[in-house]
């Protein structure tokens, strides 16, 4: 049984005090993020075909498809859809990215998403085309 004493942590405390503090200088220095980090979702509007797979697999209901027009296939008029992302509720699981057959979606490394207005987090990038 080791000897009981008050202040067993004192030697380590002084050692820590003389060391450099382990704090990362975040706001003044950029964060080194690992290659696989899952940050804000981004879409390449050029590649998106409006196939709706992402909207179907999303567990959090981030993605809604919106009709932006019609196109003619044969003699039928089919609606053209594009996704709108409600990023405030996104859980960053990456399921949509995995399932996108056209590689239109990707997870960027941007994590500084704080905003006073929730509307800022709605991404309508795919509609702009």
């Amino acid at each position: 049984m080791p000897r009981r004493r008050a202040g067993a942590a004192i030697p380590e405390m002084f050692r820590t005090m003389l060391e450099k503090p382990s704090t990362r200088a975040y706001p003044y220095q950029k964060v080194e993020l690992p290659a696989r980090f899952r940050g804000k979702l981004d879409i390449d509007p050029e590649r998106c075909t409006g196939c709706q797979v992402c909207a179907m697999v999303c567990p959090a209901g981030v993605i809604t498809m919106i009709d932006i027009g019609t196109r003619k296939v044969g003699d039928k008029e089919l609606p053209v859809k594009r996704p709108v992302f409600e990023l405030s509720t996104c859980i960053f699981c990456g399921e949509c990215v995995d399932n996108c057959a056209f590689k239109a979606l990707e997870m960027t490394k941007q994590f500084e998403l704080a905003t006073p207005h929730k509307e800022d987090l709605t991404m309508r990038k795919a509609l702009t085309k």
């Binding site: 405390m13 002084f14 820590t16 005090m17 060391e19 503090p21 382990s22 704090t23």
Partner: peptide, 10 residues
């Protein structure tokens, strides 16, 4: 400040 430094903080 001393408490923070001893805990490895700033």
């Amino acid at each position: 400040k001393t408490a923070a430094r001893m805990q490895g903080r700033i």
